[in-house]
Amino acid sequence: MATIQNKLAAVVLPLFLAAGLTACQKQESATGQGPAEQAGKTIDSAASKAGTELSKAGEAIGQTMEKAAEKGGQAMEKAGEKVQSAAQESKSEAEQKKE
């Protein structure tokens, strides 16, 4: 979870800094855009990057969960085999005692 928070902070913090810096500029750019329009474009770009990073983080979490589920399934399978083996041994011992 800390990794996701770190990635989110790494994306969101520059977003706010960029928005703050562009809002402080009073001169218009060569394209004729005012400060609010420049800030909007900067925010759009940062939001797009944030979405990409969150998507990557989500994929990594999904892969980690798949691996954990697979390992859990394997552990359950081994436990089931041990239970069956123990039951078979108990059955064999009980049959021997009957004789």
Rank of each mutant, 00 (worst) to 15 (best):
A57M: 13
S48W: 12
V12I: 14
I61R: 13
C24A: 09
K98A: 15
I61W: 12
S45D: 12
I61H: 13
Q25F: 00
A86P: 00
Q27L: 13
K97L: 10
M76W: 11
A50D: 04
S92G: 04
S55K: 14
A75M: 11
E89Q: 03
K7I: 04
L17Y: 08
A18H: 02
E53N: 08
S55L: 12
P14N: 14
E93C: 04
G32F: 12
G34S: 15
M1T: 06
K78L: 09
E70I: 03
E37R: 10
K56W: 06
V83D: 09
Q96W: 05
E93H: 01
A94G: 08
E37W: 08
V83F: 11
C24K: 04
K97G: 06
E89D: 03
Q96M: 12
K41D: 09
F16I: 09
S29P: 03
I61T: 13
Q88G: 00
A57F: 04
G32S: 11
T31D: 15
A18P: 01
S90G: 08
A23V: 04
L13D: 15
L17C: 05
G32M: 11
E66H: 05
G72S: 05
K71M: 02
A57R: 05
K71A: 06
G62T: 14
S90T: 00
P35V: 11
A46R: 04
E99P: 02
M76T: 05
T52H: 10
G72Q: 05
M76A: 14
G58K: 13
L17N: 06
S85F: 01
A75R: 08
